[in-house]
Amino acid sequence: MAAGAATPAADRERGGRIRSALLTFLLVLPAGAWYLVLLIAPLAIITIFSFGVRAKNGGYAPAFVLDNYAAILGDLQKAAPFTASLSMAIGGTIGSLLIGLPLAYFIATRAGRRKGLFILLLVIPFWTSFLIRTYSWLIVLGPGSLGGFIGDLVGDDNFRILGTPVAVLIGLVYGYLPLMVFPLYVTLERMDRTLVEASKDLGAGRWATFRQVTLPIALPGLITGSILVFIPMMGEYVIPQILGYGRIYLVGNALVTDFLEARNWPAGSAKAVILIFVMLITVTFYTWFVNRGRKGREVSVL
C-alpha cells in the first residue's frame, strides 16, 4: 500500500486508529501514573542512592562509587542477611505450599456447599491488623502454651520456640498462606473434574493422577501463589522482629539498621537493589524450572 494514498477509507481507518490509541492511553493513564510514582520513581532513586556516599550527618550525598556493593559482595558477614532471607523465604514458600495445596484442593473439590464458608474463614483474619495477629502468635508459641507443652514433652525446660527461625517460619507461613491458597483454589476450582476420572479410567491411581493431571493443571496457580508469598517473605521485617525477637537478622532488618539506625542510605539502597536482583533471579529460575518439559501452554509470571 502506498504511504501517501489518502483515500477516504484510509482516512477513516487512520482516524479510528488514533481514537483507539487515545482511548488506550486514557485507560492506562491512572495505573501508569501509579506505577511511575510508586514503583519506577523509588526504584530510580534507590538505584541512584546506591552509588552515592553517606553524608556527614547521615542520609545521602551524591557520588559515583561502587563501595556499597563491594562492601556487601566482598564481605560474607554482610551477605548473611541475604542468605538468611532467601532460606527463610524459600522455607516459608515450601511451607505455604505444603499446607496450602491440600487445603486449596480440599476446598475446591471436597467442600461441596461449604466452599463459601471455608473461603470466608481464610479471609476473616484479614479483618484484624496484621500486627495484632502476629503478636497473638507470641502467646500461642510462648512458654505458657505450645512452647512449654513441647518442652514438657521432650523434657527440656529450656526449650523455646520464640526467638528461633522456626517461630519466624511459622509466622511467615501463617501470614501469607491465603496468598498461596487463593490462586491455587481458583485453578483447581476451574479444572474439569472429568479429567481426573479420565485419568483413573486410563489406569492411573490416585497419586499417579494427582502427579500427572491435577498438579500440572494447577501449575499456573502454584507459580502465582509461590511468587505472591515468596516476594513479601524476602523483604519481611515485622515477623522476624516480633517472633524472632530480632535475633533472626534478615534483609528487612538490615535495611532498617542501615536506613534508620546507621542512617547510611547508600548502603541500604545497595542492599535494596541487590534484594530486587536476588528476587528476580530466583523467580525467573523457578518459573523456568517448573515449566520445563511442558507441552501445553507455558505458564508465565513475568
Binding site: 474439569d192 485419568s199 483413573k200 479410567d201
Partner: peptide, 30 residues
C-alpha cells in the same frame, strides 16, 4: 475394584482430553 484396575475404558461426552499434553501424549497416557 477401582476404575484404574478395570480393563474398561471410557470415551467421555466432552472428550476430557488432558490440556497440558499434546495429542500423542494423550493417546499414550494409559
Amino acid at each position: 475394584i477401582p476404575p484404574y484396575r478395570r480393563n474398561v475404558n471410557t470415551v467421555f461426552q466432552h472428550y476430557a482430553l488432558f490440556p497440558h499434553m499434546d495429542v500423542i501424549q494423550n493417546v499414550g497416557y494409559g
